[in-house]
């Protein structure tokens, strides 16, 4: 019971940290962070191979995680949903939220799609081979490491958003990971311009997005 109370307090505190942000309306200098990011290939949630460069001309919000994450991923995606919903429909057309899995062995395109749909159907998941997932993470210096032996934890013990479909008679098992909590704000040229997280006041992140949306495209 004490644990539940603690969880409630922390949840309220995190909500407060988001709500507190309401009045902050300043613009920030958003320098290009040289060396952070770059082009890569991945499998999207429709099962298609895509290149990151295909998102050029859009502002991208990129986060790393995995569908069986019981900690930060649902909160990060809830935060991104809140930010995205505050944008106008016109702005939303030029903004793309990407969620790159650190557990491509488990997170199939279908499962990732179903998971992300709980937050927003416009969000796109990125998966692929282990090599592809590691390359994306290394380009963005997004640290991640397995905390358990591969596929050793039964998912029924994990607080999760959605249950993956498994063949009858098989036990669904996953790996648990530690991973970076960063949200990368990427401009229309594919350059990383800001590092944020769920502690960034929502309105502050929206101002940054709008700043990048208003930037003139360089020739």
């Amino acid at each position: 019971m004490a644990k539940d109370t603690m969880l409630k307090i922390i949840f309220k505190l995190s909500l407060l940290s988001l709500l507190f942000s309401g009045d902050i309306t300043f613009a920030e200098e958003l320098p290009i962070l040289n060396g952070v990011g770059g082009n890569f290939t991945a499998i999207n949630t429709d099962g298609e191979e895509i290149e990151f460069d295909s998102f050029k001309n859009k502002i991208v919000l990129l986060a790393f995680g995995y569908t069986n994450c019981a900690d930060i991923c649902p909160i990060t995606l809830g935060y991104l949903k809140m930010v995205y919903n505050k944008l106008t429909p016109e702005e939303q057309q030029h903004v793309q939220v990407l969620f790159s899995t650190v557990n491509p062995e488990y997170d199939t395109p279908e499962h990732l799609k179903e998971f992300l749909a709980y937050f927003n159907k416009d969000f796109i998941g990125l998966t692929g081979t282990r090599e592809q997932a590691d390359k994306i993470a290394s380009l963005f210096y997004a640290e991640h490491q397995a905390m358990t032996t591969l596929e050793s934890i039964e998912t029924k013990h994990v607080r999760r958003i959605n249950q993956k479909e498994v063949e009858s008679g098989k036990t669904d098992k996953t790996t648990l990971f530690n991973h970076s909590v960063m949200i990368y704000l990427i401009d229309k040229q594919g350059k990383t311009r800001s590092l944020d997280y769920t502690g960034t006041p929502g309105d502050k992140l929206i101002i940054k997005i709008q700043q990048l949306l208003n930037e003139q495209q360089s020739s």
Partner: peptide, 8 residues
């Protein structure tokens, strides 16, 4: 940022 090395 002070939090950028945090892993969860």
């Amino acid at each position: 940022e002070p939090w950028q090395k945090i892993l969860c």
